[in-house]
Design a protein around this nucleic acid. Structure first.
Length: 865
RNA sequence: GCGAAGGUGGCGGAAUUGGCAGACGCACUGGAUUUAGGUUCCAGCGCCCCACGGCAUGCGGGUUCGAGUCCCGCCCUUCGCACCA
């Protein structure tokens, strides 16, 4: 055994052992309970970042822990390989996205291997491989057959200079990132998946997911957004024709407070009004500029312009003017809204700005009628009752909505409706590096699906996009084809699929790895659903919701027998680091990587300065933020692994904070983790001979040795409890406490050797999911066996935990005044007696009689005077 | 703007869910070892006070014998918002 802990050797030997013995190959075995542990697959961006290391270490800890508990474990890995960054790299470096992607995959796979994850690499997949994405296409065609996939128009960001569609990310302050051109909203035909048909089920089934964090379920429920309301129409006459302007509201109780109606710039009524009003046409044109992002729309200045068109209030007949509002969106609901300035904050500001009437129709008893009062009232809409509303006066929310809906229905102008915030999923992307949509456009036959036996529609891999137009549309060898129906010349669809399609079912494909004949097979029935899914909180809504939808579609096609793909979900927090920068008087801000900065502290350990190592001059601290290129505060996992080894990297990631919280990077924290592993190594070396000669733990131990043993078993019990809670940071500290206790074990001789032998066998097994290489090495050195991975998980022993005396906290009036040491078996009367008799209690009771004594067994006794 | 989560020493965090606030680690201080730096080991370490003791879990109220934990109201930070993945 080497004296010094040398991670590179230890890790190489362990990894060779796992490789040689195919230790992580998962084989279906109906006789054993299975555990499918899945981490969100990475986008092959170039190299691993700390978020990956954290994600996959969490998954690996769970994988190894469950394996030691006797489960048949599957932990696969793959690549979310289609996407925009590959096209950006192509534009920047002239390299085809395919080559860039495959090179990245090769490099990142080596990095993952060097971290020693217990991954079954035989099941590896990449979504950009035709053998994978052909099943995207196949399932899309099934959805088309069922009417679940359909075509309609959608709004996109259009760069008029490059003649191309831009992603939201590529629009900066309303301009194209490459051209600087003002972006326009443009409506184009797209394909949609009808996720809204599953809205009810997706919402209701959230209750059946006890293994999901509440916050994720809440966010999904809000995203789906079931609401009850009334759809109704404002009748009007225009150009001699009677017509109706439809709107939807969840607040029909305020219908008598409507003072105007607002429509989207793209609304047909706006278009018609613009024909005879040049200023309005210009305003509508202005509304078309800017990004399509919801957050931008919600925070921008609310602007509007009257159309000169008036509609009738459906209940009173009052004339109300129609306005065009830039905050009304054509894609949502009816593209028109009723405006009630008195009871809606946005309408209120709009009305104030343009001098429109404000009419209060709800009274909230006890509230002054200020803007603040409205906001408060709005947050709790069940409060208050109708006023100035004629026959609805005095009605509360529910009754008022019912009455209004009934009256609208009687006039055939509206009815109650259930509406969803959730919208159908637009999957068309006018981009190259994605899965081709398997359709052919024929002049005679229309849009024709590519027959199953001609799948996959293969994406040409030698394209180099240049940022203009649609790259696939320029490829004649791709576009030109024969119509499958009539055989005539036809044009292939050039849109590709949203990459969320690729990631909506990859976890199912791992189980059917290598099957070229079918999307799924019987192995799916064994492994799925996923028992534990681990990934970033940023995916809490879209990816998880799309996966739940896609799985249900597969269920309805008879492909799988389950509907919830992920039984339990762990959403891991982001990895943060300090931000340092300099901002010159004029010119651009420069960010410095924390590794280039020296942090100085005063003699109390308080930060007093930060200077750049290169020039010794101060830099500004920009606080803490997620590791990113733009803030130049990333830490390269590769450098960390090379310097300290994979085990230190893994241990630090687990120790620094609980998985669900953000993790702050700390160089000295890494040092501390490394120090601990070095101590484990050194201690194992020091006790090796004693352990070799030790026998079982004797029934009678000296009191100090019994305390050491108790400490080990107490911490094991704590750690087992923490594993249930996914709280690996305290598992790591339990391992540290065990080592502290074992190092402090007194005496020499047989009893000590036995306690240390048992303690080390527990410690190494407890630590092995987190730092598997060093534990593998020491497990062998100490003669416990081949690998702790194949040893049973340790359990605390009652006999080791038992003790004769307990300590009770003594409080007087709820304030801690001392500690009572009593026999563990002491009865309540005995405890009360001992408390009253204690010197500390006497002193603080100041002669007053005890009014009440609260005894919490095993914890405290509180004397109330 | 809407939705969600989180604020505890100089720092990361702990507190078995209403029961000793600050485990474990980092940083810092003192000491030992070392030619020195580093390493390793020992001790100290929330704030105020000589001490008794008092004050402390973002801020302000409340419930309770007892509140970091529960309730109400503020303030701040982070994440998501449908074409980044």
């Amino acid at each position: 055994m080497q004296d010094k802990y040398d991670p590179s050797t230890v890790e190489r030997l362990a990894q060779e052992h796992w490789e040689r013995s195919h230790a992580f190959r998962a084989v279906e075995d109906p006789a054993r309970p299975k555990y499918y542990c899945l981490s969100m697959f990475p986008y092959p961006s170039g190299k691993l970042h700390m978020g990956h290391v954290r994600n996959y270490t969490i998954g690996d800890v769970l994988t190894r822990h469950h394996r030691m508990r006797g489960y048949n474990v599957l932990q696969p890995m793959g690549w979310d390989a289609f996407g925009l960054p590959a096209e950006n790299a192509a534009m920047a470096h002239g390299v085809p996205p395919a080559k860039w992607t495959w090179d990245n995959i090769a490099y990142m796979k080596r990095q993952l291997r060097s971290l020693g994850f217990a991954i079954d690499w035989d099941r590896e997949l990449a979504t950009c491989a035709p053998g994978y994405y052909r099943w995207n296409q196949w399932l899309f065609l099934r959805m088309l057959e069922k009417g679940l996939a359909y075509q309609k128009t959608g709004v996109v960001n259009w760069d008029p200079v490059d003649q191309t569609v831009l992603a939201n990310e590529q629009v900066i302050d309303g301009r194209g990132w490459r051209t600087g051109a003002v972006i326009e909203k443009r409506e184009i035909p797209m394909y949609y998946l009808a996720i809204t048909r599953y809205a009810d089920e997706l919402l209701a089934a959230l209750d059946a997911l006890p293994g999901w964090p509440e916050r994720v379920k809440t966010m999904q429920a809000n995203w789906i957004g079931k609401s009850f309301g009334v759809r109704f129409a404002f009748p009007y006459e225009l150009d001699g024709r009677r017509e109706k302007l439809w709107v939807f509201t969840t607040r029909a109780d305020t219908i008598l407070g409507v003072t105007f109606v607002a429509v989207a710039a793209e609304h047909p009524l706006a278009t018609r009004a613009a024909k005879r009003d040049a200023r309005l046409a210009a305003f509508i044109d202005e509304c078309r500029r800017g990004s399509v992002m919801e957050a931008d729309l919600a925070t921008m200045d609310k602007k509007g312009m009257p159309t000169g068109i008036f509609v009738d209030h459906p209940l009173t007949g009052e004339k109300l003017e129609v306005w065009v509002g830039n905050y009304v969106l054509m894609g949502y609901g009816e593209g028109a809204v009723m405006a009630v300035p008195a009871h809606d904050e946005r309408d209120f500001h709009f009305a104030k700005k343009y001098g429109l009437p404000i009419r209060q129709v709800i009274d909230v008893p006890g509230e002054r009628f200020s803007l603040e009062a409205w906001q408060e009232w709005y947050a709790d809409k069940q409060r208050g009752h109708c006023i100035h509303s004629g026959r609805y006066d005095g009605l509360a929310f529910d009754a008022a909505v019912e009455a209004v809906a009934a009256d609208l229905e009687a006039r055939e102008l509206g009815s109650k409706r259930v509406v969803w915030r959730l919208r159908d999923w637009g999957i068309s992307r006018q981009r190259y590096w994605g899965c081709p949509i398997p359709l052919i456009h024929c002049g005679r036959c229309g849009t024709v699906p590519v027959p199953d036996d001609r799948l996959p529609v293969v994406l040409p891999e030698d394209c180099v996009p240049d940022g203009t137009g649609n790259p696939l549309a320029k490829r004649r060898d791709f576009v030109e084809c024969a119509c499958p129906k009539c055989g005539g010349a036809a044009r292939r669809e050039t849109d590709t699929m949203d990459t969320f399609v690729d990631s909506s079912w990859y976890y199912i494909r791992y189980a059917a790895a290598g099957n070229d004949a079918a999307m799924v097979d019987e192995r799916v029935g064994y492994w799925l659903p996923v028992d534990q899914y681990i990934g970033g909180i940023e995916h809490a809504i879209l990816h998880l919701l799309y996966s739940r939808f896609w799985t249900r579609v597969m269920r309805d096609l008879g492909l799988v027998a389950f509907e919830e793909p992920f039984q339990r979900l762990l959403t891991q927090g982001m990895v943060l680091n300090e931000i340092f920068y300099r901002k010159p008087e004029s010119g651009r801000i420069t960010y410095y990587n924390p590794a280039e900065v020296e942090k100085r502290t005063d003699d109390k350990g308080m930060r007093c300065a930060a200077v750049l190592k290169a020039d010794g001059l101060p830099v500004e601290s920009g606080g803490i933020g997620t590791m990113s290129k733009s803030k130049n505060n990333g830490v390269d996992p590769q450098a960390l692994i090379e310097r300290y080894g994979a085990d230190t990297a893994r241990f630090f990631m687990m120790f620094a904070s609980p998985p669900e919280q953000t993790l702050e990077w700390s160089d000295s924290g890494v040092e501390g983790s490394h120090r601990f592993l070095k101590r484990v190594w050194a201690f194992a070396g020091a006790v090796r001979e004693a352990v070799a000669s030790a026998s079982g733990v004797p029934a009678e131990l000296s009191a100090p040795l019994a305390r050491v043993r108790r400490e080990v078993h107490l911490n094991l019990r704590q750690a087992n409890h923490d594993f249930q809670k996914f709280q690996f940071n305290t598992v790591a500290s339990a391992a540290m406490k065990m080592l502290n206790a074992l190092e402090a074990a007194p005496e020499r001789g047989e009893g000590r050797a036995a306690v240390i032998r048992e303690g080390m066998s527990i410690l190494l097994r407890l630590l092995s999911p987190i730092a598997p290489h060093i534990c593998h090495g020491l497990w062998r050195e100490l003669g416990f066996g081949d690998d702790p991975l194949d040893a049973p998980w340790p359990q605390p022993e009652e006999a080791a935990l038992a003790c004769e005396h307990i300590e009770l906290v003594l409080q007087v009036n709820g304030k801690t005044r001392g500690v009572l040491t009593l026999p563990a078996s002491a009865a309540r009367e005995h405890i009360e007696h001992a408390a009253l008799a204690s010197e500390a209690a006497q002193r603080h009771m100041a002669g007053k009689p005890a009014r009440k004594i609260v005894v919490v067994p095993g914890r405290l006794v509180n004397v109330v005077v």
